[in-house]
Design a binder for these strands. Structure first.
Lengths: 254, 254
DNA sequence: ACAAAAGTGTTCTATGTACACCCATGT
DNA sequence: ACATGGGTGTACATAGAACACTTTTGT
């Protein structure tokens, strides 16, 4: 792809060199990220940032920022944003959807390519916002009106989210829920994926699905889908917790 | 979303009015479409357009074009492109993926939001390219090297596709194949979805999956998944074809 | 002894797949 | 009568959900 120019005719090279793309109006492009985690209470959380500047000043938003044109791909922009916001590198990002209505941002036409990241809370170093803005984890909660977000006593309804981020987050949750049954997403949320118990994994599935799961059935599915296929390995060790039967430890491989 | 400005403080309005987004460099954004059809021989096809201009002049590409900034959403751009290229309106478009490497297009950084459309061949009026370019349906074929495209004796290997369109098409096929088992995509490819036989639907599934399916099992699945759920209705009529038992007709509801 | 998490077994049903077979039609 | 596609029935393996039950630990 890089060396397209090398195999060009003189005529085409001339065309390329004289081409001026600036005569057409262009949109801004951002890479935004829905970051999911599990908190201490095993509840599903997302990272939100309180906007310190116009527009939607004071509203909460998912992390993101403008792609650096000619310097990086949209994927790389997302990686960069994730790092800047959380200090995390080499976290697999999954492209969720692209939002492109002209009126999403009151300043200009912004096309946002949205990604999803699944991160264990322990790895997350939430950067205290540089510009007096605020970054926090919020539990994903449900009621009759749909979804809202909670951190302790502070609750954020959909209406207090900036731009169309309520729609974006809703889609991300929906997709996560659908994927959890056939993709190994849940492993990415484990504190330590090379040493975990079946029940730690079960709790992740439960809070993503927002309902409790049958222990026996979860184990059977675990053995079939993951152990049998080699995705997971039995470490032959046990987690000796207090007050209960020691639990077998497993390691995520692939 | 439209009336964000109405609820603004004077201060914010001032900010918005004085905001100049043109100080940042922006990428171009296109909406591209992978259009799938079934041909007379019940083979899966895609629509390709021979590029009449630089870059990749003479190469084959999927239809697409630049989004009109401030005038339309990316989705609307895709609809417009579909209409301009095929004369089709009100065809459901599914967003496939967004491609955003800086070197995809030798002219400039282009972010392409790619959509998939499933269209019965009868509805397709392929526009003879306005600028001496060429538009044709190509069968999706497989060999050891992966996928290639055929129209009669003319074959197009992946290498003769413009930009990264080979990757795009490959992803579109993969997604189509995955979706076919749990989404009602196949109905969109029927000549007449309000009057079709089970075997017409079966042939669509077969050519998407590229293998033959068991008749009895396909029927059972059809009755269970579609008839029982009301997605499909028995018309109580029969298709009286020549030389064989008349086949029951069904209607796709929704 | 008991709470609490860890782990096992059985049963029922739905689905996917393989395969053998019958049916209605025009030539 | 027969080729061709249309249509039916049986049988088996596996996945999912429901549920009753045992085991191991620290207190």
């Amino acid at each position: 792809m890089k060396d397209y120019r090398k195999n060009c005719s003189k005529e085409e090279l001339e065309y390329l060199n004289s081409y001026n793309s600036e005569k057409y109006k262009k949109p801004s492009v951002t890479a935004d990220i829905v970051i999911f985690t599990m908190d201490e209470e095993d509840d599903l959380c997302i990272l939100l940032i309180r906007r310190g500047a116009f527009p939607y000043k004071g509203f909460w938003a998912i992390p993101g920022g403008f792609m650096e044109v000619d310097q990086e791909s949209v994927d790389e922009a997302a990686e960069r944003e994730l790092f800047e916001e959380t200090g995390l590198k080499d976290i697999p990002l999954t492209q969720l959807y692209t939002f492109g209505s002209p009126d999403r941002d009151p300043r200009m036409h912004v096309v946002s390519v949205v990604y999803t990241a699944l991160v264990p809370k322990e790895k997350l170093q939430i950067k205290a916002g540089d510009d007096a803005s605020d970054a926090k984890l919020f539990k994903v909660c449900y009621d009759i009106d749909g979804v809202f977000f909670r951190n302790g006593s502070q609750t954020i309804p959909k209406e207090r989210l900036a731009f169309d981020h309520a729609d974006i987050i809703q889609l991300a949750i929906k997709r996560l829920r659908n994927r959890i049954d056939y993709e190994p997403d849940a492993f990415a949320l484990l504190k330590d994926r090379s040493s975990f118990t079946i029940y730690e994994l079960k709790r992740i599935h439960e809070s993503i699905k927002n309902r409790s799961l049958d222990t026996a059935n979860f184990r059977k599915a675990f053995f079939r889908s993951y152990l049998a296929s080699g995705t997971v390995r039995d470490r032959g060790e046990k987690r000796e917790d207090a007050g209960r039967k020691p639990a077998e430890l497993y390691e995520f491989i692939g």
